[in-house]
Amino acid sequence: MNRRILAAVLLVILAALPFIAQATGQSALLSLASRILIYGMAAASLNFVLGYGGMVSFGHAAFFGIGGYVVGVLYHHADTETLFWGFIPGTTQMLITLPAAILVSGAFAAIIGALSLRTGGVQFIMITLAFAQMLFFLFVSLKTYGGEDGIIVRRTNELPFLNTRDRAVMYWVVLAITVAFALGLRRLTKSSFGTVISGIRQNERRMAALGIPAYRYKLFAFILSGMGAGLAGALMVNVLRFASPDMMHWTKSGELMIMVILGGVGTLVGPFLGAAALLSLESVLASWSEHWPLAMGLILLVVVLGTKGGLMALVTRLTGGRK
């Protein structure tokens, strides 16, 4: 009951943020909040395979980037009035681009997952990294879509009845999608499917003995996770109005992982907390000194070595509640 009230209060504050930002004159607050929500979604998607499923993917930025590039490429073709692969016209309608981004990143996740899940452990970490790097270099070499420089999306995707070019409106769109996403994820983790995924993490052989085809379940979880990251990437391009190969760089995968671990592996709220902590810390430290990575590195070390379970464990300990 307590947590519901907490969630409701948080939601009200988040919804009122554009007004708060305007009143206090902190216009950067809005873009920071949008980025936190979006990265939170990407990190939560990663957390679904990593925390619940025990599959340590070091290549999730690939799906994030693919989702972003779907928006970018569709914009590019709409802008130049050309056809993608000779038959797909471009579009700037968000109702089309977001589902397209989800589907395409899901398809990539299906291919990458099907191959990668044949391995495990360290090899799984490295092979997912390998696939992400391949996609990174592929997009770097695609001169049509800006190569290294990426695509500048001059106009944010449109929604019927809403003016998405207004930053506040775009923020509310992101917030609404995040809430829906979080609710969906919560349902998913509590469903029988989510339970099986957790069971596979704990003991794959036992699950197999129960007659559960582990590989198929893991693959399906991987695809869902890729779709979530793709959705986040598509929104990110809409907010930043820019898609570039940097979205799939391996350091981005690392950042997503840091958010998950910082927030708390295998928890629903953890990745969002982690994203908020990391991004706020980054912007605060960066405003103090250009040498902020030094402090960031030390903080990461202290967090990893000194705590177990990330910020979520801290929150649970402070509120004295059970998980």
């Binding site: 992982m257 910082l262 040498h291 030094l294 030390l298 990893v304």
Partner: peptide, 20 residues
């Protein structure tokens, strides 16, 4: 610890050394 913690901690080390 598991691989996750190792990745995170050594990533922190990279940031630290590069910036130093």
């Amino acid at each position: 610890r598991d691989h996750l913690d190792q990745v995170l901690a050594t990533f922190g080390l990279i940031l630290f050394f590069n910036q130093s």
